[in-house]
Write a protein that binds this DNA or RNA. Sequence first.
DNA 1: GCGCGATGGTGAACGGCGTTCATTATCGGC
DNA 2: GCCGATAATGAACGCCGTTCACCATCGCGC
Lengths: 206, 206
Amino acid sequence: MARRSEHTREQLRDLMLEAAEQLIVDKGLAGLSARAIARQIGYTPGTIYLVFANLDELILHVNARTLDRLRVPMQAAVAATDDPEQQLLGAARAYADFARSHPNLWRACFEHRLPEDVAGPDFIDARIAQLVELIMAPLARVSGAEGAALDAAAQSLWSGVHGVCILTLTGKLHMVGGQATEHLTDDLVTHYLAGLVMRAAPADAR
Amino acid sequence: MARRSEHTREQLRDLMLEAAEQLIVDKGLAGLSARAIARQIGYTPGTIYLVFANLDELILHVNARTLDRLRVPMQAAVAATDDPEQQLLGAARAYADFARSHPNLWRACFEHRLPEDVAGPDFIDARIAQLVELIMAPLARVSGAEGAALDAAAQSLWSGVHGVCILTLTGKLHMVGGQATEHLTDDLVTHYLAGLVMRAAPADAR
DNA sequence: GCGCGATGGTGAACGGCGTTCATTATCGGC
DNA sequence: GCCGATAATGAACGCCGTTCACCATCGCGC
């Protein structure tokens, strides 16, 4: 017992994040435990606390990685065209697609709850802000909105897409005529955008 | 030990649901435990399993109650006016208001996860369907939609409002210019409806 | 070549959890 | 007044997150 320097702190950190990620992918947040991570990487639970303050912090870092990975396809969707409406549709579809392909990782980002009195760390907030900012420019272009109105549009649209993903992926919406995630995100985005554009430049005023 | 018939099964059931509800209200789903419920009602944990199959089932029944209570103000909002757009706005506001006044109960309905392989019970699905159905009639009136298109509209609109509530209430949206829940629901509903109506009867066709 | 201080890592322990079940105290009916 | 049925217990099992005294190992100074 008591090996020395088998891995550096950094290596250990990566091993733990990797193992935790795999556990979440396989069995969801509920399947994650300090003991399971330790077992997976051949250490004891105590070692985890040499690297992270507690399990919550470890999970937050897994989530940060997930949010980074989620940004890639969304960014690609925005870069794929110059039509701002298509950019927004693409981003929403990329979001929904990521959520559907990595349900447990994606859900971990939003289901994980810190203790009542602890605030989320900046490195998570910043990554969420990055995602919302991705859609700001196209949204400004289609709607002509700016300032607080633009902020509101970005937040409500993004939240809306998020809501569709959550409810369809957790099976809380499979009632009569339950619809596919993609279909509903498209419906939400196109109608919201149409309404937003109309409000900005009403047909009556043409 | 081993008191007999101090309460009937029904009374015991209600005591447990009441105690569980209070625990969730006070400390969230995470603060709920079989031992805490038992302590609260003066029984031992084992007794719970004479009434419910397991804690999950008990939580599902608390959630069913919560959904029933949520329906009341939404129904009232729909009954308060004849203008379908105002009915929809009112229902959304009622939803957001309920979520904000009973955050822990409301969140319990959506954060509680059954084991991977267990399907949600009908008595929850039915109550969610009831909520969505509340907005079907007004939505049909404003948009003229019917059939699958109407289903899709109801689901994406409701999911969207839900998403706004989740992200604002869990503090996952307090970035630059973070907006109030009510403001964002109004924004989402009005713009979505405007877009939906326009699509149904475009201004160009007038 | 050797001892020693620093330290990475351990593993046992604490108090919690959900759940099960043999056991017991109490009841209604005979 | 007994007896079978049963409501409720509480101890037990195997988990959990987290802490910490301890020790095996390393690199350094001699």
